[in-house]
């Protein structure tokens, strides 16, 4: 199965570059891309992604323009939209128009870092939401995840905000999560090295890589495909 999801912040450094990056990720055999919608107050993100949000906002990137760009391109992987809650619920043309647009552009699901499991039902988005699981998520909550019937489950690999870190603890908790949840479990936050990916894939179904790729955008987006190839060069496949 496809084991790699890339996080690409839309509009960083500009939306045309984002489009080129997305097209360059075709043919690599990845599962999907999370397109990051910029937000003024990204509380779950570390410095690298915060900066990307700021650049994108400053150049006028917004959700409507992002969806129009996605409509123009052909990709051989799944597309997810990652956005904080406020830009989603306050879409200028209303929530229903947004949901229609997401369907038209073939978005598979929404990744919303400030929408925890408990509040999903209170927001009534009428669109698939990717549930987050953290190393401290309690068993009772895990048992509820299967009701959501998510395309995948996002496992946060450590305490903290996004950004690169060396160690990936919590592998034992991850094993338990795999027992509880029938949707594929993808692990994100702090992943930048091939050894980490290999370790995680012994238990999880895949990895999500963000900050490492975002940093490479500054050096030219061609570097991203190299990095993705490096990280996805699995022995087992």
């Amino acid at each position: 199965m496809k084991k790699f999801i890339a996080y690409i912040p839309a509009g960083y450094p500009d939306l045309l570059t984002t489009q080129k990056i997305l097209e360059s990720l075709n043919g690599l055999g990845i599962k999907g891309v999370e397109i990051g919608v910029p937000f003024s107050d990204p509380i779950a993100d570390g410095p690298v992604i915060q900066r990307a949000h700021k650049v994108a906002l400053d150049n006028g990137t917004n959700l409507k323009k992002i969806l129009a760009m996605l409509e123009k391109i052909e990709v051989d992987y799944e597309l997810y939209v990652m956005s904080y809650l406020n830009p989603i619920v306050n879409y200028p043309e209303g929530r229903e128009v947004l949901i229609e647009r997401l369907l038209e552009v073939k978005i598979k699901g929404l990744v919303i870092p400030d929408l925890p499991l408990r509040e999903v039902k209170n927001v009534k988005l009428k669109f698939p939401v990717i549930p987050f699981v953290a190393p401290n998520t309690r068993d009772e909550e895990l048992a509820n995840i299967d009701e959501i019937d998510a395309p995948f489950v996002y496992y946060i690999s450590r305490y903290g905000v996004t950004g690169e870190k060396d160690s990936i603890p919590f592998l034992n908790h991850l094993k338990k999560v795999k027992l509880f949840v029938s949707s594929p479990v993808f692990v994100g936050f702090g992943i930048s090295k091939k050894e980490q990916v290999e370790n995680i894939l012994k238990i999880a179904d895949g990895v999500i890589v963000g900050s490492t790729l975002v940093k490479l955008i500054e050096q030219g987006y061609e570097k991203i495909t190299e990095k993705v190839k490096e990280l996805t060069d699995f022995d087992s496949d």
Binding site: I43, F132, V133
Partner: peptide
């Protein structure tokens, strides 16, 4: 409305 990791 916070990241899941804060819920506990």
């Amino acid at each position: 409305y916070v990241p899941e990791i804060l819920m506990p």
